[in-house]
Simulated assay, not measured.
Amino acid sequence: MKTDWHSIPTAASGLAPQLPGQPIQFFRVKRVGDRALVDLTGLRLDQEKPGLCNLGHLPAWAKADLPHQYFWVNDSPTSLHPSLCAVYYGVTCYWTETLAKGLLGVQRPATLRGGFEFTSTAPIPPELIV
């Protein structure tokens, strides 16, 4: 069983403020069997504040089986996984920190690229199955 990609609108507190005329930000989620794929590409983070930032909430059908997990994510087209993102309580996505010159830092990148995957055995609503 699998789903198509679903756009999840988000205006979470850690994202860059929405300017007039800009669409609301979103990330994408897809299920393929017991794997949930999360694509964070294009999310703009609020760089005015350092540290942990909320990215949004996963739908119930993509809830992570392990409630607290960390994932390395790209944060620019030329980077290779320097940002650390997390899922808390199985549903809330956060950006937590970045790796710069071998040290962990709290300065948020401008955007995120790519995403991560995890195990999810939450039931998929029949209308989402393709």
Rank of each mutant, 00 (worst) to 15 (best):
A12G: 13
F26G: 03
L52I: 14
P20Y: 06
T121Y: 05
T10F: 05
P17C: 13
Q47N: 15
K49T: 14
S76W: 01
G90F: 03
R35C: 11
K30H: 06
V91E: 08
P77W: 07
S83P: 02
V32M: 09
G56W: 00
H68T: 15
S76D: 06
S83F: 01
R108L: 04
Y94E: 00
W72G: 10
L84W: 06
T92E: 09
P82C: 06
A110I: 11
D4Y: 15
N74H: 11
V130Y: 14
T41S: 15
L84T: 08
D4E: 15
V130G: 13
K2Y: 14
G42M: 09
H57K: 15
D39N: 07
L52P: 12
C53K: 08
G102L: 07
C93E: 07
L112A: 04
P125R: 06
G42H: 08
V106M: 11
V73L: 02
T98Q: 10
L103Q: 12
G115H: 00
H81A: 10
C93V: 15
T119K: 14
P17A: 14
P20E: 04
G114S: 06
A12K: 05
W95C: 01
G114T: 04
Q107S: 13
T10G: 07
F26I: 04
A12C: 12
T111Y: 11
D75F: 05
L80K: 11
L128R: 09
P59C: 03
A64W: 07
L43S: 06
P77K: 05
Q107Y: 09
A86W: 02
I129W: 10
F116D: 03
F116M: 09
V87P: 01
P67N: 06
G115E: 04
V29T: 03
G56Y: 00
A11P: 01
P67Y: 03
F116R: 06
T41G: 08
L112E: 02
L128E: 07
T111D: 09
V32C: 12
V38K: 02
T78G: 12
G115Q: 02
I124P: 13
H57E: 15
L84C: 12
D34N: 14
P125L: 03
V91Y: 04
L40Q: 02
E117K: 15
E127M: 04
T10P: 03
L45V: 07
F27K: 00
G115M: 01
W95T: 00
P123L: 11
V38R: 05
D75M: 07
V38C: 06
P23R: 09
C53R: 06
H6D: 10
Y88V: 11
A86C: 12
A64N: 10
N74W: 03
L45A: 06
T111M: 13
Q18V: 14
P50I: 10
H81R: 12
H81M: 09
W72V: 08
V32W: 12
H57I: 10
R108Y: 05
S83I: 01
T111G: 09
L128S: 08
P82H: 04
P109G: 00
E97Q: 11
K49A: 14
I24D: 14
G21T: 01
A110L: 15
F27Q: 01
P23I: 08
R108E: 02
L43K: 05
T78E: 14
H57P: 04
R31N: 10
T111E: 13
C53Q: 08
D65L: 08
V91H: 10
Y94G: 00
P67C: 00
D4A: 15
P109T: 02
L58I: 03
L103C: 10
S79V: 07
